[in-house]
């Protein structure tokens, strides 16, 4: 009997992971169209900071490196500058694929822990879906204090001037800390989000 790990090895180059990405990742069907020119890798402003370039991730997907790809933090670094997309000679929607892969990894629980972009996304999503509006104060507090109380205070003090500026300019209300205001029909909004999630889940094969 092969172990689970061996099965994983055998599945390599069976294109199973490629198919999985095609079916379950936003714009994943484009991965096969990459011709490994590397222009995306060279165009990315975050290039020096990540481990795997988009083109390399696409190759790893074709090579069946499921764990490595989904655990990679590279796609979390995408800032949606679209440099790669406008230069890609095959017109791959690379930005969308990167975000799609990140989302997919997150849904599977395989995304790297404590990845700042991921944490921010989670916090933002929870914050925003609660009332249908982003609550800046609560968002910032959660983000700053995610690394502990001391770190939170330090970050808050560092951002003090910006915060006071926003208060003076009435861009932010201190009372929002108590829950803040939402859209008119919060319940309707939340139902809409739920429905959208259901559709998306069904499409990506996550439905129960």
């Amino acid at each position: 009997m092969p172990t689970a790990l061996n099965e994983q090895a055998l599945a390599r180059y069976r294109n199973d992971f490629l198919r999985e990405v095609e079916e379950r990742v936003d714009e994943g069907g484009w991965v096969k169209m990459c011709m490994q020119c590397g222009v995306c890798a060279g165009s990315c402003p975050f290039g020096p900071h990540w481990e795997h370039s988009p083109q390399k991730i696409f190759m790893m997907i074709r090579a069946g490196k499921r764990e490595e790809v989904l655990a990679s933090d590279s796609m979390w670094m995408c800032t949606s500058c679209y440099n790669c997309v406008v230069r890609c000679p095959r017109k791959l929607p690379i930005t969308t694929i990167m975000h799609g892969l990140a989302t997919y990894a997150h849904r599977l629980g395989l995304a790297p822990k404590r990845q700042p972009t991921r944490d921010f996304s989670v916090i933002f999503w929870e914050n925003f879906t609660r009332n249908g509006r982003a609550n800046e104060i609560r968002l910032m507090l959660r983000l700053w204090f995610r690394d502990g109380f001391g770190a939170g205070i330090r970050k808050a003090l560092a951002m003090k001037e910006v915060g006071l500026g926003m208060l003076r300019a009435k861009r932010m209300s201190p009372f929002e800390i108590f829950g803040g205001h939402g859209v008119k029909d919060v319940k309707g909004f939340q139902a809409m989000i739920r429905k959208a999630q259901e559709i998306e889940d069904r499409k990506r094969g996550f439905s129960k």
Binding site: Y13, N15, L18, K32, M33, M35, Q36, M59, R62, A63, R90
Partner: peptide, 14 residues
């Protein structure tokens, strides 16, 4: 033709 092969799912590995 190469693009067509890719879109049909032929995998190309250098």
């Amino acid at each position: 033709f190469y693009r067509s092969g890719q879109s049909k799912g032929v995998v190309f590995t250098k």
